[in-house]
């Protein structure tokens, strides 16, 4: 038996919104310690890794490991039927072919149950090595989203250059060019840890897709090192994270 109750549906809605532009279907791997997800986009350029620890939930029970293959569009439709302040319980028996989502209104006067058919997804998992990123930048998530939006209107490629002086985003296209530089401030809203400067080029549309996770967190962490995928991490309160990895563009 698997059963997980969240006090508010809003968190689940935000998580699904953060995933569904990059993934159409995905498997939730549920174990005693919590729920994990790892999946690549269709073109195998980016990867999403999510962790929700069991202490994220008001109630959590997972008698044996279970994989729940879900169509995220369908899950999103079900979540639209619920209010943000409803409590939600996700449950499935062992060897399930369906998952149940039960919503309970804040005053407990309304309950609604939905069943979703599970999918048998054959998802490939990649080993993500521990990486010492040469540059780690923590900045307001809203600022990162704004920069990605502004950059992608100039060019398909975004160059990110990070040094002790700051992090610089550049895009150059037919229309012209754009450069945005953020320096570390005494207010502490931009925090830079730089061992070595790094400059890498990335596809802007993926960066923009990652910013769908902005409502999850005030801060975003960006990790860069030469010739490794970019890390963009949004913490989920103190209970987990959504991490996106993006392969860089390489010179031919």
């Amino acid at each position: 038996m698997f059963e997980a109750r969240l006090g508010s549906t809003t968190l689940l809605k935000k998580i699904v919104d953060a995933l569904r532009e990059i993934l159409s279907q995905s498997t939730l791997d549920c174990s005693d310690s919590g729920i994990q997800l790892q999946a690549m986009d269709n073109s195998h350029v980016s990867l999403v890794s999510m962790l929700l620890q069991n202490d994220c939930f008001e109630k959590y029970r997972c008698d044996r490991n279970i994989s729940l293959g879900l169509d995220l569009k369908s899950l999103s439709k079900v979540l639209k039927c619920a209010s943000g302040d409803d409590a939600v319980t996700i449950s499935a028996p062992d060897k399930a072919d369906k998952v149940q989502l039960s919503f309970e209104s804040a005053g407990k006067e309304r309950t609604a149950d939905y069943e979703l058919r599970l999918l048998n997804l054959d998802q490939e998992h990649l080993g993500i090595p521990e990486t010492d990123y040469s540059c780690v930048v923590i900045m307001p998530a809203i600022e990162f989203a704004r920069i990605c939006r502004d950059m992608t209107s100039f060019s398909e490629s975004v160059v990110i250059a990070c040094s002790k002086d700051g992090i610089k985003f550049s895009a150059s296209g037919e229309m012209g060019s754009a450069n945005i530089k953020l320096s570390q401030t005494s207010k502490g809203d931009v925090d830079l840890t730089v061992e070595e400067p790094v400059t890498l080029s990335f596809a802007g549309r993926y960066l923009s897709t990652f910013t769908r996770a902005t409502p999850l967190s005030e801060k975003v962490k960006i990790g860069m090192a030469a010739d490794v995928p970019l890390l963009v991490e949004y913490p989920i309160e103190d209970y987990g994270y959504i991490r996106y990895y993006l392969a860089p563009k390489v010179d031919d």
Binding site: E124, H125, P129, S157, P248, K249, V250
Partner: peptide
């Protein structure tokens, strides 16, 4: 010019 790398160039299948 630059081309897009794939994740499998960096991360190995488990």
């Amino acid at each position: 010019s630059a081309s897009q790398a794939k994740l499998k160039d960096f991360f190995k299948p488990k």
